[in-house]
């Protein structure tokens, strides 16, 4: 398998001595194309910071993040925004849909922001796959938590990104809905050949992954 994402000596520190917080500390990992990786760890261990760094939401203090061989840590703000649009699909715990846009608009938004036209047939297909084809025109506040998260998954898939990064995607859902969403995420990622990195506290989810990375105090221990 080809390596799609790799970090080398990645560090993200906050503050200064004596209150220096090492959120991510010399992390070197590799994620292969099409792999399903889960990241586990206690609260405050640095899971989300690592995910934010991988997704280009934040800049590292030092180290490299190589996406298909290119170091995104050296990107400017505009380049970084383009990177997020084209290469990354985010799924957050709090769904983070845009309240003023309907389901369809939320899904095609990253493509529109990239100045491209959405492949409508493909979007329709995704919406069918996640069972939201009848809710295209609904506004987010009229949807249940599970429906909102499914919509967020569709948005993450629509731009055909290289990697989907999900930060506790089932954290706000009951266990049955959570299972549904997780299985949907896995099957769609597989179907569209995307790499999936999921942060989770859920042991069951971690067990279904190809590989699990455990983080403690900012360091990958396994």
């Amino acid at each position: 398998m080809d390596t799609i994402l790799e970090t080398k000596d990645l560090c993200r520190y906050y503050g200064a001595d004596p209150q220096l917080v090492k959120a991510v500390d010399h992390v070197s990992i590799r994620i292969e194309q099409g792999e399903f990786v889960t990241v586990v760890g206690k609260s405050g261990s640095g899971k989300s910071t690592l995910l934010h760094l991988l997704g280009g939401l934040d800049y590292p203090t030092s180290g490299e993040i190589l996406m298909e061989g290119r170091n995104i840590a050296a990107y400017g703000r505009e380049e970084m925004a383009a990177y997020r649009r084209r290469k990354i699909g985010f799924v957050f715990q709090a769904y983070n849909l845009i309240p003023s846009l309907n389901v369809w608009e939320n899904v095609v938004l990253p493509i529109g922001l990239d100045g491209r036209k959405a492949d409508e047939a493909y979007v329709e297909e995704i919406l069918c796959a996640i069972g939201m084809e009848k809710k295209k025109r609904s506004l987010p506040n009229t949807l249940s938590g599970g429906q909102q998260q499914r919509c967020a998954i569709a948005r993450a898939l629509a731009a055909k990104p290289a990697i989907i990064l999900a930060d506790e995607p089932t954290g706000n859902l009951d266990s049955r809905t959570g299972d549904e969403v997780m299985s949907l995420l896995k099957t769609t990622a597989k179907k569209y050949g995307q790499t999936l990195v999921v942060i989770t506290h859920n042991e069951e989810i971690a067990q279904t992954a190809d590989r699990t990375l455990t983080i403690e105090d900012g360091k990958v221990v396994v």
């Binding site: 309907n102 608009e105 938004l109 529109g112 506004l139 506040n141």
Partner: peptide
Amino acid sequence: TGGTKKNRRGFSQMSTGRL
């Protein structure tokens, strides 16, 4: 989102202007 509105016709394609 505009009071009690449940749906929005919306656009099939998005751009900054439409946002």
